[in-house]
């Protein structure tokens, strides 16, 4: 019989400032979140701008111009509030445009590596 698992949620954070990923992951460790996956992502605006540049034609050639990073992490529900506060603190306010977007999704089943 499997042991009772704590309720989990999938936290999705889309950071518009890739440079802050490191700080976010360090914060995760401090809070007790022990794993996350970081995906290089690209906003709609960036894709649309890419094929219609006006003055800066070279900008789309560089990899970091994908602009954003998506951080995915399944974590215990009890940590969610603290993670939201962490993101808020790192970004300096989620109400600002071009800062970050974060949301949670319920996790129905979870299997795989346990840290």
């Amino acid at each position: 019989m499997s042991e009772a698992q704590p309720r989990r949620k999938l936290m999705v954070i889309i950071l518009d400032q890739p440079a802050l990923v490191d700080e976010l992951l360090t914060g995760f460790l401090d809070l007790g979140v022990r794993g996350a996956t970081v995906v290089e992502s690209r906003g709609m605006g960036s894709i649309i701008r890419q094929d219609m540049p006006i003055f800066a034609g070279l900008a789309s050639l560089f990899p970091e111009n994908t602009g954003s990073r998506m951080v995915l992490s399944v974590m215990a529900e009890s940590l969610i509030d603290r993670v939201f506060s962490l993101v808020e603190e790192i970004i300096g306010g989620l109400d600002k445009p071009n800062s970050a977007v974060c949301f949670t999704l319920p996790v129905e089943q979870f299997r795989g590596i346990r840290h």
């Binding site: 894709i47 094929d51 219609m52 540049p53 006006i54 800066a56 034609g57 070279l58 900008a59 789309s60 050639l61």
Partner: peptide, 26 residues
Amino acid sequence: AEVRSLRRQPAQDADSERLVRATSGL
């Protein structure tokens, strides 16, 4: 550097597009 107007197919980031943009930029 704009290549949108040259395409017939949806976005595919082909070599020709990169070439147009890169040469335009440089």
